[in-house]
Design a protein around this nucleic acid. Structure first.
Length: 860
RNA sequence: GCGGGCGUGGCGGAACCGGUAGACGCACGGGACUUAAAAUCCCGGGGCCACAGGCCGUGGGGGUUCGAGUCCCCCCGCCCGCACCA
């Protein structure tokens, strides 16, 4: 008898059962192999979105599968709970950021639980809790003692809307990554982390991150941006021709082209440019122009290479008789190298454009391999390898050797040195916000900066704050910052900045190992659980979060907290969710909820007005094409939402969310239910021994082969994140099972076996319905405690194979042969095939190529 | 501009190391069941043609090979990342 499958009741039933059995709570067990599966933890915005649904579905499939594979699986969940939206909510609605956050956590926890995730909820953490951030404060103090944290008066990116400092990495196209406001430059005292101390290690170790996507590894490499080059010292010559007794330090990655240099250029921010501008109004104006250019990529892209001739000249370090003009130029960055360059127009496109504009000489000093003479007119810069010419003692060398030789000579002369340059800059962690972890420092008028003693941690946030004004609420708080200096006892003030929220996410994976410990984490726990075996999240964190976490882990190791350098052994980055977009006749975006089909199948809005469907775009609030996953779960259940999430697209690619796709997933859920429950009356009892092979009908044997081949394939697919293919194989098995007509008792046994295998393999994806079916199949232990099925190797190979036969590379027929039939047999069968003979006509075969078990190609 | 990736039916996508292109799903068409609809089940869909057969087909053009979606060269289009990085 089949009874209707009640989605809601069943999903709630098994979620309760897993919870009661504490099925997913784990403890450290050195006798067992561990597997730490972690998805990037969410910011508690109050509602889960499709990105969460995808992220946690993928992670849950991996976690449940690894569990079935016998691993001791740690799969925790927590909340990245500090951050600006809480303050915005406080401003907009008058709610305290803490209350708002904890309410959101409660709401989102319930939503995540409705997904049926195999989470160890006993390890839940929220980073805004003092028991979390107190350890972070302690780490900061240790970093400070170790010289990894320091304070620096620095130019910072100031976000005028959020009234906060942004890390260089948080500025996108000159705008704040969160507010979108145009970023200004300001000088502020900042707490910094010396991430550059690990630049080389962070770069080198990328090579060992074999289970990371190449794309992310490349992005990190580019971000760190190591380049080999040289610093070259030029003496300045004044406008009057006399020595200025001043040196200019130039950085170049192409010191080999030094003899081709025809000008020098300073960044508008270069100290000398600043100094010269003081009594040169025209230069002041030029520098202002450069500021207006902005930092946006587009502006820079379009900008012409322009400069201002300072009238000063610089003496060539290897040709003392030659002096070069010194410009201030809009394309030279103060942040990279020394903020000053020498320009070699023949071998750098930017320098070439600059030289053309200002009529500067272009001297070719590298002759490409194969060329016999320098070009009369250089059309575009020659950047490839070649042989040095016009370069004195470098002539005849190739580029690499010339670099080495010129650096050696400069070093001998005291006019330069080889250096390694990084694009990466130190991480500023100060934020002028309330809803973050307080930086545990005290400013004493007498003693200067004094760390808060460890025994006084945590430095807790005050509850009563006024967020209605811009700026830093902690600074304005009436009493919070007043404190006695720990050293001299005099009246002092607390640091009122709080930490960048990337701090919390830089070590939360370690806290999950010992979530209730009095210390940050127990050594034995992290030694067992870390590193994270599989980390899963959005590619938007490819640089910032992942690089900071890698740095932080190294810093923790440096301070003796733990023993590993890399926090994430395997990384998987999922694609985004897209949806069709809709507009009404007025061109206004409509949400999918406001769009339906009329009786003629046309798209209309709720009033029946016509609607046009636009491109499929990534879900975004601005295009109003978002779908709330809780509505899908409410209507169809978590199993359906999960199954559809996995079924159509490879997880690393963007996927389109469609209502019809959801319905298709729901149909499969119902079909699976009917298929298994409908067979219960006819199949033998659970535990009936396997029948002899010859008792099976041909179809029965074929079904068993299908099922066992699926077992082998699905496991491999999940191992390689080919989840859409795993789903396709499960559909195939379901189709085979659905079309199977048992003829014998042995066949009925095979039917049970295939149904069981199907249920067990679908389980990581649709855990609720499979758990219920498992019970109905007659088992009393929960499916979550079952091991992953093993394929019977005997059933993986067929006795006969179908082989295609080609004539001159075109398929003309197929033949069926015993597996591993020898070449003469295959040749004979192929030539004897009537379709092949017809295709051959009166031509005689000249050659027959046989690829065993695959194909025969007759060449005629 | 540089770096990376991707182009396969109406759509999402399969196709391992070069070996029967289009698995599986969605959408669509036909049939069965039904008073009817929904649901379900069965069947069918790359294009073209002189249709028991054949020709063409994986963005375009060339090449290597017995054989190319897959390898090589050139071109076109789209997407992502970034650094005017000297």
């Amino acid at each position: 008898m089949t009874s209707r499958y009640n989605v809601k009741e069943t999903e709630a039933k098994w979620q309760r059962a897993w919870e009661r059995a504490r099925a997913f709570e784990v403890t450290r067990d050195p006798a067992r192999a561990k597997c730490y599966v972690l998805e990037m933890f969410p910011y508690p915005s109050g509602r889960i979105h499709m990105g969460h649904l995808r992220n946690y579905t993928i992670g849950d499939v991996v976690a449940r599968y690894k569990r079935a594979r016998g691993f001791n699986v740690l799969h925790p969940m927590g909340w990245d709970a500090f951050g600006l939206p809480a303050e915005n909510a406080a401003i907009d609605r008058g709610v305290h950021p803490g209350e708002w956050t904890y309410q959101n956590i409660d709401a989102m926890r319930a939503q995540l639980k409705s997904m049926g995730l195999s989470i160890d909820w006993s390890r839940e953490i929220a980073t805004c809790h003092p028991e979390y951030y107190r350890h972070e404060q302690a780490m900061f103090l240790e970093f400070y003692r170790q010289g990894l944290a320091y304070r620096k008066e620095a130019w910072v990116n100031w976000d005028p809307v959020d009234q906060t400092v942004l890390a260089n990495e948080q500025v996108e196209n000159g705008k704040g990554w969160r507010s979108g406001a145009v970023v200004e430059q300001r000088k502020l005292p900042q707490w910094m982390f010396r991430i550059t101390a690990f630049a080389d290690d962070l770069l080198e170790a990328i090579g060992d991150l074999e289970r990371w996507p190449d794309k992310v590894r490349l992005m990190q490499r580019n971000w760190i941006g190591r380049s080999q080059g040289a610093r070259v010292y030029f003496d300045l010559v004044g406008r009057d021709g006399g020595s200025r007794d001043q040196q200019l330090e130039m950085f170049s990655t192409r010191p080999d082209t030094l003899f081709g240099a025809s000008f020098c250029a300073l960044s508008p921010h270069h100290p000398l440019a600043e100094q010269l501008a003081q009594d040169d109004p025209e230069l002041r104006r030029f520098r202002q122009e450069c500021e207006q250019l902005g930092t946006s990529e587009e502006a820079i892209e379009r900008a012409e290479k322009r400069g201002y001739d300072t009238g000063l000249r610089a003496r060539h370090p290897l040709m003392p008789e030659v002096t070069l003009p010194v410009y201030v130029a809009n394309f030279v960055l103060m942040e990279y190298g020394t903020g000053a360059i020498f320009g070699c127009p023949a071998h750098d496109q930017r320098d070439l454009e600059f030289a053309r504009r200002y009529g500067l000489p272009v001297t070719q000093v590298v002759l490409p391999h194969g060329a016999d003479a320098p070009e009369a007119e250089i059309e575009s810069a020659i950047t490839g390898d070649g042989t040095l010419v016009n370069s004195g003692f470098l002539d005849g060398l190739d580029v690499e050797a010339a670099k080495q030789r010129v650096v050696d000579r400069l070093q001998e002369l005291g006019r330069g040195e080889g250096t390694t340059q990084y694009r990466l800059r130190d991480w500023g962690v100060s934020r002028q916000r309330y809803w973050g972890a307080p930086i545990p420092m005290i400013h004493c008028p007498a003693c200067g900066v004094v760390p808060v003693p460890d025994s006084d941690l945590p430095v807790e946030l005050p509850h009563d704050v006024d967020l209605s004004k811009p700026g830093n609420p902690l600074d304005r708080h009436p009493g919070w910052k007043q404190v006695d200096c720990p050293d001299c006892g005099a009246a002092a003030e607390r640091e009122t900045d709080t930490f960048d929220t990337f701090m919390e996410s830089s070590w939360y994976f370690a806290r999950f190992c010992s979530p209730r410990s009095d210390t940050a984490f127990e050594r034995a726990d992290v030694d067992y659980w870390l590193p994270v075996d599989q980390y899963i999240g959005g590619v938007e964190h490819a640089v910032l979060h992942l690089l900071y976490a890698r740095f932080f882990t190294r810093a923790l190791r440096h301070c003796g907290y733990l023993d590993i350098a890399e926090p994430f052994d395997g990384l998987f980055t999922q694609g985004m969710i897209a949806h069709e977009t809709y507009k009404d006749t007025a061109g206004k975006w409509l949400s999918p909820q406001e769009v339906m089909r009329d009786s003629d199948g046309n798209l209309v809005d709720t009033q029946g007005h016509p609607v046009t469907a636009g491109r499929v775009e990534k879900m975004s609030k601005s295009k109003r094409n978002t779908v709330d996953p809780t509505e899908t779960i409410e209507a169809y259940g978590a199993d359906t939402a999960r199954w559809f999430m996995l079924s159509d697209s490879p997880p690393e690619r963007d996927m389109e969310w469609t209502e019809s796709g959801v319905e298709g997933a729901y149909r499969f859920l119902q079909r699976l239910w009917r298929m298994v429950t409908g067979a219960l009356d006819e199949i033998p009892a659970a535990g009936t021994p396997e029948p002899a092979d010859d008792a099976l009908s041909k179809a029965g044997l074929a079904l068993r082969r299908d099922a066992h081949r699926s077992v082998a394939a699905v496991g491999q697919d999940i191992d390689h994140f080919r989840l859409n293919r795993a789903v396709a194989r499960l559909y195939e098995l379901a189709n085979a099972l659905g079309g199977f007509e048992p003829a014998t008792d042995a066949d009925r046994w095979a039917r049970r076996e295939s149904a069981e295998l199907l249920v067990r393999m679908v389980a990581p994806m649709m855990p609720h319905v499979t758990e219920e079916l498992w019970q109905r199949l007659g088992y009393t232990t929960m499916l979550v405690d079952q091991p992953w099925p093993e394929a019977d190797p005997r059933l993986l190979v067929a006795d006969t194979v179908k082989m295609a036969v080609q004539v001159n590379g075109k398929v003309r027929g197929t033949i069926e042969l015993p597996r591993d039939a020898d070449e003469p047999t295959a040749r004979e069968a192929a030539l004897g095939d009537s379709a092949v003979q017809r295709a051959l006509g009166d031509k005689t075969p000249r050659k027959v190529i046989v690829v065993p078990n695959k194909i025969v190609n007759v060449v005629a």
